[in-house]
Design a protein around this nucleic acid. Structure first.
Lengths: 245, 245
DNA sequence: GAGGCTTTCTTTGTATACATTGTAGCTTGA
DNA sequence: TCAAGCTACAATGTATACAAAGAAAGCCTC
């Protein structure tokens, strides 16, 4: 073997970027990203040959990647007919919130029952403080919204991690493959709504710290389910009911 | 094409047996069955070449089937190292009950909210009556136990179906790939326990019929979670606490 | 003798050719 | 004109050969 392959160590491909070990994984990542960014129409067929030409690999890793994405729930598969972008009905999207609500609630309960590990406790305290800072200003600009989204994601991920249950994590991940059903998509940035959700975060943290499993579960369930309600209102075109502050 | 293939219509392969459309699916079925019946040791490596020789197909459908089973949670996969039978710790098995409890509870709630379709209503009434008959006798023989297992499975499946939510069904199915975490494995056949669980079934049915979503959810959750408690007792070797009747 | 390196072998990952299935368009007959 | 069937094409399913990564055995050095 005189021909050493240095591609993986070339400076333009930093090692820090965890590069998938196989083409299958790399292709799956690329297609997943494209799907989540809405690059393909719902219902569109994904032709193996075309994808293989476009991505510059053979059909084998393409097929393997498509199978992965189908098992993640992002694609539809029919034997001898191939893969197509899964269509999600409004009902399915709403259901996904309901499912995520009970699963995240379970995660919060597990975290409370099992105790919050130091790393997760610190992460949560940090994002709670960050959220407090962001919400100190009366109006949220684009930067603040982006920053709060990151805060929100980190908060939830810390709790999934604290649940110490792989299957719960897997299932919550499946919910995120449903469009609009991710905690990354904050539905409403109305200052009042964000404040309320941030206050939920504080209470959930308190409940977990106090090992109050029941309260942690109930708070998280309502926290996620409430977003469903906003979504349903948004989808039906009805404006939010006005409330006093 | 002078050579018409009639294999699929030959009398020795009845059409009624839904035969998988591809070798991949057929292989996946065979390996899944083998796994569930405990034919492979936990942690055992599944070599693609050996499987392909044993099952008489090439590596391609084997790989595809293994990938499926890994995504179902039955196998572990590591890039460049292949697939191995997933080990489930006691904690994971117990957690799977907890997850199944909240998911089946959600299914019961959906069924109550959405109304019980005629087909499912009839199926449930039939198995409730069958269960009543089986439990009429004071002692349960092997036949009765088998029959009651079937009744139990049908009851739960009817409710999953009535939930009309594919994702809920998928997630409950994932729980069944965890050993001992299936409603097919009835933990205790103590007459008192079976009676109680059968009574739960009646109440859950009543709640769903009455569109009492909250009660249906709570009853189902406790119904499934109670089996977890029995399992934990059985695993820890402690005998069941004796109770009055 | 122990540890690290090299070499070899085993096993998985990928490419490609071929087989099979599904589909669309055409032909043919009523 | 329409429908049924045939034909050709296009896409997926499978087999197989080769590439590359990992594991294990042997060698060398210290």
């Amino acid at each position: 073997m005189t021909d050493v392959d240095l591609h993986h160590f070339s400076p333009d491909e930093p090692l820090s970027e965890a590069r998938p070990a196989t083409r299958t994984l790399s292709v799956a990542d690329r297609i997943r990203t494209a799907l989540l960014s809405g690059e393909f129409e719902p219902g569109a067929r994904l032709h193996e040959v075309r994808l293989s030409e476009r991505l510059g690999v053979s059909r084998t890793p393409i097929r393997s990647a498509l199978q992965s994405l189908a098992s993640e729930g992002m694609l539809e598969y029919a034997p001898n007919r191939g893969y197509s972008v899964r269509r999600f009905s409004t009902a399915e999207i709403v259901d996904a919130y309901e499912i995520r609500a009970v699963m995240e609630a379970l995660a919060a309960r597990f975290a409370a029952e099992r105790g919050l590990p130091e790393a997760e406790r610190m992460a949560i305290e940090r994002v709670l403080a960050e959220g407090d800072d962001i919400l100190a200003s009366q109006e949220l600009g684009e930067d603040e919204k982006l920053a709060y989204s990151a805060v929100n994601t980190t908060f939830h991920e810390a709790i999934h991690s604290a649940a110490r249950c792989r299957m719960v994590g897997d299932m919550i991940r499946m919910c995120h493959s449903v469009p609009h059903s991710s905690h990354r998509n904050v539905i409403s940035f109305e200052h009042m709504d964000v404040r309320r959700r941030h206050d939920d975060h504080h209470r959930i943290y308190d409940a977990i710290l106090a090992c109050d499993a029941y309260r942690a579960e109930m708070l998280m369930r309502e926290h996620v389910a409430s977003v469903k309600t906003s979504l349903v209102r948004a989808l039906s075109g009805r404006p939010m009911a006005r409330r006093g502050r």
